[in-house]
Amino acid sequence: MEAKISAHDLTVNHQGLPLLDDVTMDLPTNRILGIIGPASSGKTTFLRALNRMNELQPGFTMAGLLLLDGQDIYAPDFDVVALRKRVGMVFALPVPLPMSIHDNVVYGPRLSGVRGGRLDELVEKSLRAAFLWEEVKDRLQTSALRLSGGQQQRLCLARTLALGPEVILLDEPCSGLDPISTAKIEEALAVLKSDYTIVLVTNNTKQAARVADETAFFLQGRLVEHGPTQTLFTAPRDQRTGDYITGRFG
């Protein structure tokens, strides 16, 4: 099967310090890839390389190749705005924009010129897919800031889905959430993977074991091991992977 995303010798430096060192891997289509690893192991840097968010901050340089459907997304003529619509992102902390629930969901589509009744359809479809519709359908015009943390994160997921992306990047989306909200997000992801390629960075190895089809273990900017989740958790090839998932460090 053709890889949706493939990284070749991907290296990212920030002000001369390597954050990501020579990572080569293929990401399968319509699967969930879990990325685990201790703090500052390069998980988030890798994720943010996939939709070119790193370059928004000064001091980042990169080398290597990142292909989306075989196209180099760092090529000079590659449209970064279009890329971010194809590769959506949900951040660690839910950041609803200070506007209504409805306006949050349609923020991206409106920028692309979608208008009128199409927007309402998108709102319902996206909120349903994020398992939030039933809770907010009667108050779409109220401020998104009034939602609970778990609802806000599902709103952020819906907002990303409304872009109609092909890939969804999630950066520790459940780190600030209670177990019930976490379960709802995981439930949504399990359904969504049939339509999207999902990359889930998580601090919680159990979460990767629960929802990811494949798992990659990062350590100090390097990819240590990448394989089917079942294999990686039961029979890791690398000693360090085993130590991390059994909680010996991290």
């Binding site: 968010m53 928004l56 971010r84 959506g88 950041v95 924009l97 923020y107 991206g108 920028l111 990303t160």
Partner: peptide, 26 residues
């Protein structure tokens, strides 16, 4: 907040769209 800019860019907004829709209103 810088996070508003990040979110806006991640949703495919250009810099000018981010200025108009998120930064100036706030």
């Amino acid at each position: 907040p810088a996070s508003y800019r990040e979110v806006s860019f991640s949703l495919g907004a250009t810099r000018w769209q981010t200025v108009r829709k998120v930064i100036l209103p706030n």
